[in-house]
């Protein structure tokens, strides 16, 4: 949950954890395990593997807790660490010396989040169009949208997650949004034609 309440809470938990408070460690796991797992599953479909990575990440965090730095967004830090943990673990199992973040494609079914007052008809139509729009996005664009809008990271944080600079992240997201918008706003028949001509 992204309420302000939770945000302030997690910073507090993070600080107590760094000060070797064991209770805070349990709360950190309690509040963060789900979204780290879910994020991990976007790259690896094997759920055992992803759960192992979450465990490994928390054990590593615990062992290094005294040297962790304060941060205004522990969530971002944890997500980034999760991605690195997965990369490391994949390198090990595939006996590769290096995997770039680009070798980890973001894979997930997308759907349309309707507004409260959206009529059902519009919903299904828009939902169908959106699926089509998502097919035109590449893995990186999908990940950027997920990080920005589903997890609520800032542009700056998204850029760091993707290993690109701030402006590139903004452009990437804006291009993706306009791609989606243009497909969704296209009248119904044109979308249908586009599909049949494909």
């Amino acid at each position: 949950m992204l309420t302000q309440f939770m945000k302030a809470d997690i910073i507090n938990i993070w600080d107590r954890f760094r000060q070797k408070d064991d209770e805070a460690f349990s709360m950190l796991f309690e509040t963060c395990a789900e979204y780290l797992y879910r994020y991990g599953r976007k790259f690896v479909s094997d759920d055992d593997f992803v759960r192992d990575c979450v465990q490994e990440l928390f054990i590593k965090l615990y062992n290094n807790r005294a040297s962790l730095s304060p941060t205004t967004n522990p969530r971002f830090y944890l997500l980034l660490s999760m991605k690195n943990t997965i990369l490391d673990a994949l390198c090990k199992t595939r006996r590769m010396t290096y995997l770039s973040p680009d070798d980890l494609p973001f894979v997930a079914e997308g759907y349309y989040l309707p507004e409260d007052d959206t009529p059902e008809v519009t919903m299904t139509v828009t939902g169908r169009k959106l699926k089509l729009a998502l097919e035109t996005l590449n893995a990186r664009q999908k990940e950027a949208i997920y990080l920005r809008f589903q997890l609520g990271l800032s542009y700056d944080e998204v850029s760091k997650m993707l290993g690109i600079n701030y402006q590139s992240a903004r452009n990437l997201i804006h291009r993706s949004i306009s791609k989606i918008r243009s497909t969704v706003d296209t009248p119904d028949n044109i979308v249908k034609n586009a599909r049949t001509s494909k």
């Binding site: 797992y37 879910r38 976007k42 079914e109 997308g110 989040l113 309707p114 997920y146 949004i177």
Partner: peptide, 13 residues
């Protein structure tokens, strides 16, 4: 504000 209202499925833990 500029949310494109796209969401991705989240697996359950």
């Amino acid at each position: 504000s500029d949310d494109p209202r796209v969401r991705f499925e989240e697996p359950d833990l």
